[in-house]
Each structure stands twice: as C-alpha cells, then as structure tokens.
C-alpha cells in the first residue's frame, strides 16, 4: 500500500496530558497503539542489488500489550523497531502509531513522536560521563518540565528499576545490568505510550537477562505497552506472551507463547507446517514453536 505524498504539519505528535489515556490502564477500551499495514523496507546494497528487509509486514498491537518480536539475525527485528521510532522510513505501506501515520511525519515532528516512546537498546546507549540522574533526567528535560518535577520523577524511575540512591554515581561505573536498568529508567521516566526494546538482554548473562525481563514485566503491569525484540528463546518461555516471529522480512508466525501450547493451531499458521507436526507426546503447536525457535537461536 503506497502512502500518500502529503506531509503532516509541524505539530506536537501528542498533546501533553494525553498520554495517560494511551497507557494500558483501561483494558476495557483497547485500541490499537501500533499498526503495521503492508510495510515494506528495502535497503540498496553497495553491489547494486536490493535487500528486502521487511516484506508486507502486517501487525496490530493494542494498548497495554506485551509483544515479543523474535527471529534470526538479519530477520528485520531491529529495522521494524527503527521504523517505529523513525530512524528509518518505510518504502511502502503505513505504520500508524496512536492513529498517526509515522511515514508522513515531517522531520521536525519526529522528536514529538520519540517523546511518546521509550527506547532500550542492547548497547544501553547511556552517556558514561553523566551521572545516573542526568542520564534519566534528559528524557524529561526535552519535555521542558520544571527541575523540581524532573528530580521527583527521576527519583521514582530510579526506584522502579532498583537504582534508588545511585543517582549521583557516574553512569560509566555501573555494571552492565545496572546500565541496562538505567536505560530502562530513562525509557519509562517520561511515561511513554510504548516501550521499544531492541535486544535489551543481548549483552547480559542469562540471570541478568531474566532480571531485566522481569523489570519489563513490571513496567507492562503498570499499563505500558511493550514491544520487545529478542532472539533469546529462554526469555520467550518465561511467560505466555504474544510472539511474532520474523523471518526473511516476513511475519511467519504469531502466537501467544506458552499459554497457547495446548490450543489448536490458529488458521493463519501455514498449513503445511501445521500438518507436518506429529500428534502425540507433545502438542503440535509446542513442537512447531520449538523447531522455529531452534532456527532462531
């Protein structure tokens, strides 16, 4: 689907004060917070060929959902997230975030989009020379909040991620797990409509990875929508969550984690794959997931 040529005017992406309604507290009135509509993304390669990273991706995430995106390296997970925070633009199709087409935003409006997103990366992306508090406060400083309010909210965010009392420390002296907690605090301090996590546990050992996942679970429990990209299958097994499997630029599977193991295969699962699984010792869906995740990892 080609997007319209018109560009959105330079206006704030969301009005201040409208964010609470976008967080998932009211589950009775679920509305899509993120929609991928036939999204295509192609990179031109130096050799001259085209690399199709995303091929007609369709996706709908409702407010308050926790969704895993998984797939092998190069499957397009990071690209998918980059399209959401507009580090990349779609070549075709639409991405609607809170009802607004991200592709049609002007460059000047992109900061307003990002103020409604919390982004966490594998390499933390914190400023080591700044203090812990400064690293978190910057997300509020761009919003122009008063320094008093910033101090209060930073303290709350640090407490939520278990870094209370570390505000004055240099970020560079924190351990890997603590640095990721700091990055999460920065992502949530602005109470965004959605948190995007791009392999946030990739640099952490398994115990710390579970710890960080637990933190995301807590954030989700408070009503925040979370889109979590990972190739670590152990994380996918922890709780029953909706899982999107990306492979060669396509969403090849959508299922609801462990909770769906005993359920029959949904109609959108490829018929050949569904039929190929032996029925018996293990439920067909479980076996299918195992096989797919083996490919992923």
């Amino acid at each position: 689907m080609a997007h319209a040529g018109g560009r959105a005017p330079l206006t704030p992406f969301l009005r201040a004060g409208s964010r609470d309604a976008l967080r998932g507290g009211d589950f009775s009135a679920k509305k899509p917070v993120l929609v991928f509509d036939d999204v295509q993304k192609v990179y031109r390669q130096p050799s001259g060929g085209d690399l199709h990273v995303l091929r007609g991706v369709e996706l709908l995430i409702e407010r308050g959902e926790f969704v895993f995106v998984t797939g092998p390296s190069g499957a397009g997970k990071s690209t998918m997230l980059k399209l959401v925070y507009r580090a990349e633009t779609v070549d075709d199709g639409r991405i609607l975030f809170c009802g607004r087409d991200i592709a049609r935003l002007t460059d000047e409006s992109v900061p307003f989009l990002r103020r409604n997103l919390g982004i966490v990366f594998q390499d933390f992306k914190i400023v080591p020379s700044w203090t812990v508090s400064e690293n978190v406060a910057i997300a509020l400083e761009v919003l122009g909040l008063s320094s008093r309010l910033i101090r209060q909210r930073v303290a709350v965010a640090l407490e939520r991620v278990g870094l209370a009392g570390r505000g004055g420390d240099r970020a560079g002296v924190l351990s890997g797990g603590e640095q990721q907690r700091l990055a999460i605090a920065r992502a949530i301090v602005g109470e965004p409509a959605m948190v995007l996590a791009d392999e946030p546990t990739g640099n952490l050992d398994p115990a710390l990875a579970l710890d960080i996942l637990g933190l995301f679970e807590e954030i989700h429990a408070s009503g925040t929508t979370v889109l979590f990209a990972t190739h670590d299958r152990t994380l996918l097994d922890v709780r029953p969550r909706r899982i999107l499997v990306l492979d060669e630029g396509r969403v090849t599977d959508v299922h609801a984690g462990l909770a769906a193991y005993a359920e029959p295969a949904p109609s959108y699962v490829d018929g050949d794959e569904a039929d190929a699984e032996p029925v018996g010792a293990r439920p067909p869906r479980h076996a299918r997931e195992e096989r797919r995740l083996r490919r992923v990892s």
């Binding site: 900061p111 307003f112 103020r115 997103l117 982004i119 992306k125 914190i126 400023v127 700044w130």
Partner: peptide, 18 residues
C-alpha cells in the same frame, strides 16, 4: 567525541535546537 550523547538526545526526542 560526544556522539553517544547526541544519539541519546535524538532518541529521547530532543529537537535540533535542543
């Protein structure tokens, strides 16, 4: 030398002026 700082600012929604 402060590329990370600029990246962080961009990611948290800082405007060009900021």
């Amino acid at each position: 030398r402060r590329r990370t700082e600029v990246e962080v600012l961009r990611l948290v929604g800082a405007s060009d002026g900021f």
